[in-house]
Amino acid sequence: MATLPSNQTDFELPLTQHPVDVAHALAPRRPATWVLSIITVVVAAQIVHLFLTNPNFEWDVVGQYLNSETVLQGVVMTLFLTVTAMTIGLVLGGVLAVCRLSDNTLLRVLASSYIWLFRGTPQLVQLIFWFNIGLLVPVLSIGIPFGPTFASIESNTLVTPLLAAIVGLGLHDAAYQAEIYRAGLISVDEGQLEAAQALGMKPVRVFFRIQLPQAMRFIVPPTFNSIIALVKGTSLVSVIGGAELLFSVKEIYSQTYQTVPLLIVASIWYLFITTVLNGVQFFIERHYGRGASRKSSSSLVARFFDRRAAERTLNRGMES
């Protein structure tokens, strides 16, 4: 504090020869950034070099199996499991989140208990549990509760590895998804809901037109996190004999002993799927980011789409 002049008039403006114009100023010097960048590039180059030249990776074998029928079947199964489990997770998760936020105590307790149970136990344990459901409930029946039954089936016949996988992955995912939805929903300003109510909107409309769209900005990023986790989580299904991607490559390398190249085959496919998901995420985030910022988006791709959107609204405005 003592170094500050006690009085503004103590300052003397530096005398410059020329008037200053910052229009063509240079970028600041950043030596540390340069050093770190060089180190990073060298290390990265070494890693790539290792990947390409180490004969143990057996890239020719990778190429040979990448499109093989067994592997492709595994990829399809992985995608199928991801989509079905994700659908269960997104829908059931939504129901759970709404229940957890409802005024009804019974619904709140039920939803919280579900989340507590399915989030609190390992996914692998749940998968094995569903696969062995026959040990707990040998026969499944449809009928009136505590009354007569109309049809029944043996659990072991019904619960194939596929069904156990879908149920196991989906129910586990729903517990996580419910919390993602809830976090998004409670992040929407209460004033928004009051304004919607004051306009005479009914509760369902307030939820779907005002609260949920604004919550989506906070829901989308963690949801893609969890979808990507789900893609990789499907590999757990190999434990109960579901013929997904990891199971397929395991089947091959257990006979050929080409473990490393086949794990690379699997990794390449997992990376391919998750990369596509990243792209989908970009567009969904853009959609729900409308109006969120005073600035218009800055990336080239974003600017291109912004211009298209602006033209569309302009045209719509003209029509009116």
Binding site: Q192, E194, A195, A196, A198, G291, T313
Partner: peptide, 11 residues
């Protein structure tokens, strides 16, 4: 309202 409470995701 004091804080306007316009819906920010709508024009």
């Amino acid at each position: 309202f004091q804080n306007f409470n316009l819906f920010p995701h709508w024009t």
